[in-house]
Amino acid sequence: MKALEELDIRDDLAYTQTHEWVKITGNIARIGVDDYAQSALGDIVYVELPSVGVVANAGAAIGSLESTKAVSDLNSPVTGQIAAVNEALSDSPELVNASPYEDGWIIEVEMTDPKELDGLMKNDAYLAFVKTLAPIE
């Protein structure tokens, strides 16, 4: 597990309390898991991806990440159709660990209600949230 000061926290992303991040381009939300989650889960060995076209509901599980330690849900932060999934993860799930914000992105959702983004955390709010989590050594 990374120490707090080692966590990669990005200004251009919004985060959920269940450790997903969202990056907005137009009405497309690209979604992945944050550095905290990938570090806490350990080596990710399988990513269960949804099919393109399936409808994701905000706050509901849309896939899962399998690490050697545990299974963790991927919750969609927004509602909408799955527009794309990161097919590279089928062969290389370790990209989620190596590059959680770039090569390790997981899905893209075509948002139906951009107001849902208002409930997400940014910058200082996210940092304050991470600080409240179980003590990291």
């Binding site: 080596d43 060995v45 050697t68 330690k69």
Partner: peptide
């Protein structure tokens, strides 16, 4: 330790 910084997959 559950794993070191190497990670459990490479360790296995």
């Amino acid at each position: 330790p559950l794993w070191y910084s190497t990670g459990s997959v490479k360790e296995h």
